[in-house]
């Protein structure tokens, strides 16, 4: 196990430069771009210069750029301080909002990931096993189509059909008003189960189905194609033929083929995380889901670039962390990886 710990440490240390680069990039982008962010917040209202200065000071914009860079970075790492909001309300620590909204996004991401993987797996394997058939062609069309499905359109369509017309699921928010779940992890589905509150669980479930279905379907297409192509390749490989030559029954051989085909898919899952988080913004906005994505959208309207920066940095950290997790999982699954 010592080898595994060492492996984790090595991979983790590779994430650090990635996150640093992203942070630097975002920082440069937001500070160096034309347009005074303070004025953007203020808009056309008249604000006395003294107050403007105060706002600048609060946003840390009065210090030299390099100082701002390290100040903010250290603030995040050492104190979890992501700066303060610039508008409505002013001066509140951004981190408060971030931690409050994060669980909602995580819950949505996990649920969508499950949906995407399931659909992708079933269609990918189905297409590969029935290669060349009508079903396969349909599945290939599906994978191209999902690539171009615009999340809000699919989301609204599902809201209309499954939410309004069939009244099966809720079309916005996480819980119906009046229902309360004691907060343990912030993941409502989990917390309601922990509290033994089955009706709250069902309520939360009926709220999460449509958004996770939307995001999941849109992202499943890439999975479908990846799994299908990999499986076709594996099914034609030598060791599968060798299995058959030994008289191993077909269903077992298929299982081994799937396991082999699945390994490169695991690395793709890391990339998926980035896409899931990106899609979360649109999904949360469409379904009024109170997560980080929606937070960014709200803050856009207020031109609160400080909050936006904080949220984006947090996203960068999450992406880096998820990639690390995927790396470790990959090492555990594939015996050819040394650690």
């Amino acid at each position: 196990m010592a080898g595994l710990s060492r492996y984790i440490v090595i991979r983790a240390s590779l994430i650090v430069p990635t996150i640093l680069i992203l942070y630097t990039f975002v920082f440069i982008l937001l500070r160096v771009l034309p347009g005074d962010p303070i004025l953007a917040v203020v808009g056309t209202r008249y604000i006395p210069p003294a107050q403007l200065e105060e706002m600048r000071r609060m946003a840390g914009l009065d210090k030299p750029i390099l100082v701002q860079y390290f100040d903010y970075l250290l603030g995040v790492i050492l104190r979890g301080d992501f700066g303060k909001t610039l508008a409505s309300p002013v001066g509140k620590p951004v981190s408060e909002y971030l931690w409050e909204r994060l669980p909602a996004t995580i819950e949505l991401t996990i649920a969508s990931f499950i949906v995407a993987s399931l659909i992708g797996f079933i269609t990918g394997v189905g297409g590969a096993l029935r290669r060349g058939s009508r079903l396969d062609t349909l599945i290939r069309i599906y994978s191209i189509l999902t690539y171009t499905l615009f999340i809000p359109v699919l989301g609204m369509g599902l809201q209309y059909l499954l939410g309004l017309k069939l009244k099966l699921f809720y079309i916005s928010g996480r819980l119906s008003p009046g229902i309360h779940v004691p907060k343990v992890t912030g993941l409502l589905l989990l917390d309601s189960l922990l509290a033994g509150d089955l009706s709250a669980f069902t309520d939360a479930l009926r709220h999460i189905v449509l958004p996770s279905l939307t995001l999941g379907i849109v992202l499943s297409g890439a999975y479908t194609r990846l799994i299908r192509n990999n499986l076709i390749e594996v099914l034609n490989s030598d060791f599968i033929r060798a299995y058959r030559a030994r008289g191993i029954p077909d269903h077992r051989v298929t299982m081994y083929a799937i396991k082999n085909a699945f390994i490169p898919v695991v690395t793709y899952m890391g990339l998926q995380i980035a896409m899931l988080l990106g899609g979360a913004i649109l999904t949360e906005t469409t379904f009024s889901w109170p997560g980080l994505g929606r937070f960014i959208y709200e803050r856009i309207e207020y031109r609160d670039y400080s909050s936006i920066q904080g949220a984006v940095i947090l996203f960068a950290f999450i992406v880096g962390l998820m990639n690390l997790v995927v790396d470790i999982m990959y090492a555990l699954i594939d015996p050819r990886v040394k650690y």
């Binding site: 030598d238 060791f239 033929r241 060798a242 030994r246 396991k259 082999n260 015996p335 050819r336």
Partner: peptide
């Protein structure tokens, strides 16, 4: 197959399941 007829393929690395 396997019981009464045995088969040995050309490339031993690719004829064994790597997992």
């Amino acid at each position: 197959r396997g019981r009464h007829i045995g088969f040995v393929f050309q490339d031993p690395l690719t004829s064994l399941d790597p997992l």
